[in-house]
Write a protein that binds this DNA or RNA. Sequence first.
DNA 1: TCTGAAACTGATACCCGGTATCAATAACTG
DNA 2: CAGTTATTGATACCGGGTATCAGTTTCAGA
Lengths: 156, 156
Amino acid sequence: MAASALSKVESVGVNLSNALEDRGLRRTATRMTVTGRIEQLNGAFTAEQLCRDLPGVGRATVYRTIRHLVDAGALCKLPILDGAPMYSIARIEHHHHTICSSCGAVGEFRHSTVERVMRSLAKEIDGDIVGHRMEIFITCNSCLAESATGKFSVHV
Amino acid sequence: MAASALSKVESVGVNLSNALEDRGLRRTATRMTVTGRIEQLNGAFTAEQLCRDLPGVGRATVYRTIRHLVDAGALCKLPILDGAPMYSIARIEHHHHTICSSCGAVGEFRHSTVERVMRSLAKEIDGDIVGHRMEIFITCNSCLAESATGKFSVHV
DNA sequence: TCTGAAACTGATACCCGGTATCAATAACTG
DNA sequence: CAGTTATTGATACCGGGTATCAGTTTCAGA
């Protein structure tokens, strides 16, 4: 792969507990448990999955903590058609997602051309552009190897 | 606006009943009622809204008909963060959506550069690209005039 | 270190969007 | 017309998520 407009996302030091504290929330043991689990998950997850992983933490608390993290901008909420939204740690400020339509793996990427396109669209769209969202549906390499069948619906 | 890579969507003759019939479904009076209402709505709508508009049609039937139309590719299902998905008639084959974050109005557009970007990304993303989705969040002109406050959440 | 206020937690009930079920009805086919 | 198949809508149900609220924890200040 040559040098290009695409930037892969590198694992930067993300500290979800700090993100909560920065919003004036207390650093409690329960929240450390939740954020710790999210950090070790190393990928996108659903709220239910987190509840299953942390049977010692109440359902409401898991959902509340996720909501706080989304509000803090530390987690991205990805709307998946026909299913529960997935969450992933926002490692970079503005980015887009790749979603494997077979296994659901989520990746982040930046591409400067996408931002350039947005600027050119700004002149031509009626109204003020306040944001955008872009997801690329892929079949990831490991699923290609297994040639698995689709699990998530794709709106093309 | 000069000639550009952006194409506005024009109202083409869409016939939702035909879309259903093409899939081997019967052209019943109830379905005509539902599709007729969607066609006269002239914009994006939610399933609940359609149910309210058609009190004479059962909830299950409204949802079933919408599902059939989505399966037929005649309706687009737009995942809205924190809320019921919206549906809009797919007037052109492949397109993207503008969503007014204030009033929720949905528009369609095509932009050839977006497709070019996708092709260039194809070389650089790990895995096979099987589709993509892009939404542009705007404040539409009429909301700008009223300077209304945001109604839909925006993931930027 | 105590003490009171405020924040947090988790069990629970609830809400909402959407779907499965199923008996009754409508639409086709021969 | 008779039989078969599709459709309908009332209903119960499901799953994701939130409001409530009593009990617990945390923290600031005395």
